[in-house]
C-alpha cells in the first residue's frame, strides 16, 4: 500500500491564481477549452504538453496579454479587470519571462533591469540601478551590467530577462518556454537560476519542454492536450505513474523513461 499522498504545497493558504473554466478562441480555433487549475502560494507549477496544446496561451491569459473568451482568471481572489489601466496594476504583480528573451536592445543589461521600476513605479534612476545591480549579481551577471543585449549570449540574455522581471517584485513568475531558444550548454545556467528562485519560495508557473527540470523542481504538473487539461498532479504521479493515456503517449513520444 503506497504512503498517503503528501498535502499539496501551499494548500493551507488561498491560491494565488485560479483558472476557472477558461476558454480562449482564435476565430474558429479553440486554444483553451474549459481549463480549471489553481496555483498555490510558493508552488512551482509546470505546464507540459504537445506544441499548440494551449500552455502558452494560458500563461498569456494570466497577465491579461490575451483576453478570455469564456471563464475567469482570479488573481488573489479577484477576477482580472477588463479595464486596461487596472490590468496594468495586475501585471505589476506578475513577472514574465519570454522564449525570445525580448530584452530591449537599446538599453544595457543594467538599464533593462531598471526600466520597469523607473517607468512604472516611478523609482529614481539611481535607486533602481542599485537594486538592478543586486538582481544581476543574483543571476550571476554583475560583470555584464553595462553590456548591451547584442553583446550577451542567449543564456546571459535570458538571465537578465529574469532579473528584469524580478525587479518589479512580483508575487508570481510566469515562464513561457524559457529555454527553448537556447543552446544546450546555456540551458543549464538558466535552469539553475530558476531552481534557486523556486527554493526561495517564489510562486512560479513554467511552460517547458525540459522534463527533467519539471521532475526535479515542480511541485505540481499540469498536462495539456488540444486546449484541455488531460491530467494534473505531483511530478511523481505524472512522470512515474501517469493516470491518463494521453500523458503516457506524450511522455513516450519524448522518449521519457523516468
Amino acid at each position: 500500500m503506497s504512503s498517503p499522498t503528501p498535502a499539496r504545497k501551499g494548500a493551507d493558504q488561498p491560491p494565488v491564481v485560479v483558472y476557472d473554466n477558461v476558454r480562449k478562441l482564435y476565430g474558429d480555433f479553440v486554444a483553451l477549452d474549459g481549463v480549471t487549475v489553481q496555483v498555490n502560494k510558493g508552488e512551482v507549477m509546470c505546464l507540459i504538453g504537445p506544441s499548440g496544446s494551449g500552455k502558452s496561451t494560458l500563461l498569456r491569459c494570466t497577465n491579461a496579454l490575451e483576453t478570455l473568451s469564456g471563464g475567469r482568471v482570479l488573481i488573489d481572489g479577484v477576477p482580472l479587470p477588463a479595464d486596461e489601466r487596472d490590468a496594468r496594476k495586475v501585471r505589476q504583480k506578475m513577472g514574465m519571462v519570454f522564449q525570445n528573451f525580448e530584452l530591449f536592445p537599446h538599453k544595457s543589461a543594467l538599464d533593462n533591469v531598471a526600466i520597469g521600476p523607473v517607468t512604472v513605479l516611478g523609482m529614481s534612476e539611481a535607486t533602481a540601478r542599485e537594486r538592478a545591480m543586486v538582481l544581476l549579481e543574483k543571476v550571476g551577471l554583475a560583470a555584464k551590467a553595462h553590456n548591451f543585449p547584442s553583446g550577451l549570449s542567449g543564456g546571459q540574455q535570458q538571465r537578465v530577462a529574469i532579473a528584469r522581471a524580478l525587479a518589479m517584485e512580483p508575487e508570481v513568475m510566469l515562464f513561457d518556454e524559457p529555454t527553448s531558444a537556447l543552446d544546450p550548454e546555456t540551458i543549464g545556467e538558466v535552469l539553475n537560476v530558476m531552481k534557486r528562485l523556486a527554493d526561495e519560495g517564489m510562486t512560479m508557473v513554467v511552460v517547458t519542454h525540459e522534463m527533467s527540470f519539471a521532475r526535479r523542481v515542480a511541485n505540481w504538473v499540469v498536462v495539456f492536450d488540444h486546449g484541455k487539461v488531460v491530467e494534473q498532479g505531483p511530478p511523481e504521479q505524472i512522470f512515474d505513474a501517469p493516470h491518463a493515456e494521453r500523458t503516457r503517449d506524450f511522455l513516450s513520444h519524448l522518449g521519457w523513461n523516468g
Binding site: 497577465n63 496579454l65 486596461e84 489601466r85 496594468r88 496594476k89 501585471r91 505589476q92 506578475m94 513577472g95 514574465m96 519570454f98 525570445n100 525580448e102 530584452l103 530591449f104 526600466i115 520597469g116 517607468t119 512604472v120 530577462a161 528584469r164 522581471a165 518589479m168 510566469l174
Partner: peptide
C-alpha cells in the same frame, strides 16, 4: 518592431504611451 517587444513591456506593467516612448 517585433510585437514581442511590446508584450515584454506590457508584462512589466507599462502603459501604451510609455511603451511607444521608451521601447
Amino acid at each position: 518592431i517585433r510585437p514581442g517587444q511590446v508584450r515584454a513591456a506590457l508584462a512589466l506593467g507599462m502603459s501604451r504611451v510609455q511603451i511607444v516612448r521608451k521601447v
